[in-house]
Design a protein around this nucleic acid. Structure first.
Lengths: 246, 246
DNA sequence: CGTAAATGTGTAATTTGTACACGCAACGCT
DNA sequence: AGCGTTGCGTGTACAAATTACACATTTACG
């Protein structure tokens, strides 16, 4: 597709997507979601593939007249993953002039980030603009459309700041996990490596973990213990204002 | 004004304000600013008085087609205070359905907070919807229109979180100040009282203060020393990532 | 001239964070 | 079967940061 066709295509984007229902949406306003999950110890995000452009972006959507912006974010997340009632929080609004579809309608985007149980999500493209929706390893994801790389960076920054204030561990590891796995998550989010002994000591002292049993045999040498978050104690710790950050 | 008239008035709000230039603005999108300043040791915010409703709100404005949302915030701040190039940062976007003018067009608002030199600002109402613009003591302000009380609370929360990361002291105390004054600011922002000795020690150890001289005679008993921020060292401390929070 | 209010200053105790070394279990290789 | 390698689990000593705490100085006011 040459650049002229691309421009025309981009100009059509919102019209195509919204079709004749355009009047049901707030013009110029969108929501984009940075959806985090963990699988095989890696932090992953959900991306959608744009059919015509053969590029990837964050899942997003437009704000209906009859829903709040928060509800838009929930709806987007539900449509792309089938999940409801998950951790979902606004982190920044992107309003520069040069963002979005060059040549197309101007859009302001409210960015949300979600923490999601990887195994429960069913990635689903919209089938109109996008033909694929799937998890990507955070390190190793492709370059994204629009300003979505900046959005991911900023969402990660927020996640980092809120590591001690939000139920990040609990939400991303709803089931059993090992301390090395949890540590790897912390290291990915914080962008630095942590001392194993100090990490384990801290996590134990928080009193929000229950040891479940030995991990039988994954692919490790010595089998690590399995843990589970004690949701009640986790909530208490957050209420007390305990820092769960490393 | 009875409730029916009020509704009609509210429905007219954006039309009145934007007049025939409505097409130059993004519909349904606004910016509101929580402008902080310090005077006589108190943290203050700038409010505007709505002529017809006889109520107060945060200064706000609409987003022009040809400006970024950040630029809108700068413009609002400039129009209401005459100030340019001040600390101004987005803190949250408000998108519920029940916010704003009941019965009127729905609006989503991007909230910004500013840190401003009280003595340099010239509060100015828009003269259309509002006939007065002035500083209010944060504690002692009137109830605000719309969801602006929530906005103030949230801006304060952000300020609290960022006390250690942003040039809050430097921006709110551009000139000479005393340590008790600075401590009072910290106490207002943090919402708790601090130990004078520990506070002074910490501030001194940060190495970002210069003692200027004795405060002659304000209205205190023993005259406190005057200090000034060393802007260069302040910036270095922030870059090093020193926590300037108490 | 005494009293009350507000300011400045340092030290000890506690808490928190950081650095660091070894034994154990499983796998793979020979 | 034995040995080497990899990954997991645990505790202690030191450093840094935070917290608690008491008294002397200055000035306004009566």
């Amino acid at each position: 597709m040459d650049s002229r066709d691309l421009r025309i295509d981009q100009a059509r984007t919102s019209i195509e997507f919204l079709g004749s229902d355009a009047h049901e949406y707030l013009p110029h306003l969108a929501v984009d979601c940075v959806v985090f999950g963990v699988h095989e110890g890696d932090l992953r995000i959900l991306l959608t593939h744009w059919t015509k452009r053969d590029r990837w972006s964050l899942p997003g959507g437009f704000v209906r007249n009859d829903e709040s912006v928060d509800e838009t974010a929930s709806r987007v997340l539900r449509m792309r993953t089938g999940l409801d009632d998950v951790f979902l929080e606004q982190f920044h609004t992107f309003g520069s002039l040069d963002r979005g579809h060059p040549g197309a309608d101007r859009f302001v985007s409210v960015g949300y980030y979600a923490l999601v149980d990887f195994s429960m999500a069913t990635p689903t493209p919209d089938g109109i603009l996008t033909d694929e929706c799937r998890w990507w390893n955070l390190c190793g994801r492709p370059d994204l459309l629009f300003d979505h790389d900046e959005m991911v960076a900023r969402a990660l920054g927020t996640l980092r700041l809120q590591l001690g204030t939000r139920p990040i561990g609990l939400t991303l590891f709803p089931d059993d996990f090992t301390l090395p796995e949890l540590q790897r998550l912390y290291e990915t989010v914080l962008g630095r490596s942590l001392d194993r002994r100090n990490f384990q000591k801290k996590m134990r002292e928080l009193g929000i973990l229950t040891r479940v049993g030995e991990k039988s045999t994954e692919n490790s040498r010595r089998a690590p213990y399995l843990y589970r978050f004690d949701a009640e104690k986790y909530a208490e710790a957050l209420e007390r204002g305990d820092s769960l950050a490393y």
